[in-house]
């Protein structure tokens, strides 16, 4: 065939429609911003009774709860199909990535399906986030020694 992989790579790039970046970004901005706005409202609500730290934790828990409910109802993924990173990056996206395999792999059993697949997507976030905090902790401790 009159084709080589290098040449083909160029052809494919030209033939593939690009992502509509502006539209994607507008969606991401408004939905992501909206979720954060909701978070801010919740935070201010909890601040009426609790300190900053606890209010932040309660805000996270509430958003996670809302994400779980909307995922179960099939709404979160409908919004995500448009919002992209707008629903991915907030903690609600993290929650969606934990809730969705839990629901999906029920068919494979509670322990071997739900339990083992629950961190299928979110696992790397926790693993590398924890590692990074450990490394930073070590540095911070060492810095205190000198």
């Amino acid at each position: 065939m009159k084709l080589n992989p290098k040449q083909y790579d160029q052809m494919v790039k030209k033939a593939s429609p690009p992502s509509p970046v502006l539209k994607d970004c507008l969606w991401a901005f408004f939905v992501g911003g909206g979720i954060c706005l909701m978070g801010e409202a919740l935070r201010n609500f909890y601040l009426m009774w609790y300190d900053k730290e606890l209010a932040g934790t309660l805000t996270s828990i509430t958003l996670v709860f809302l994400s779980a409910v909307t995922t179960m109802l099939g709404w979160y993924q409908k919004l995500a199909a448009h919002a992209g990173a707008g629903t991915l990056v907030p903690i609600t996206g993290f929650a969606n990535s934990v809730v969705s395999p839990a629901i999906e792999f029920k068919a494979e059993g509670w322990v071997t399906g739900v339990g083992s697949k629950i961190f299928n997507i979110a696992g790397p976030v926790i693993a590398f986030g924890t590692l990074a905090s450990w490394v930073w902790g070590l540095l911070y401790w060492a810095m205190g020694k000198f």
Binding site: G33, C36, A85, L88, P90
Partner: peptide, 26 residues
């Protein structure tokens, strides 16, 4: 709203321009 939205836009740009999968972005 602005900061939260902005952080999400950066994520979207990473997905659209770098072909990074969502799991890698997170």
């Amino acid at each position: 709203f602005l900061v939260g939205g902005g952080i999400c836009v950066v994520g979207q740009l990473l997905i659209d321009y770098t072909k990074l999968s969502p799991a890698r972005v997170l």
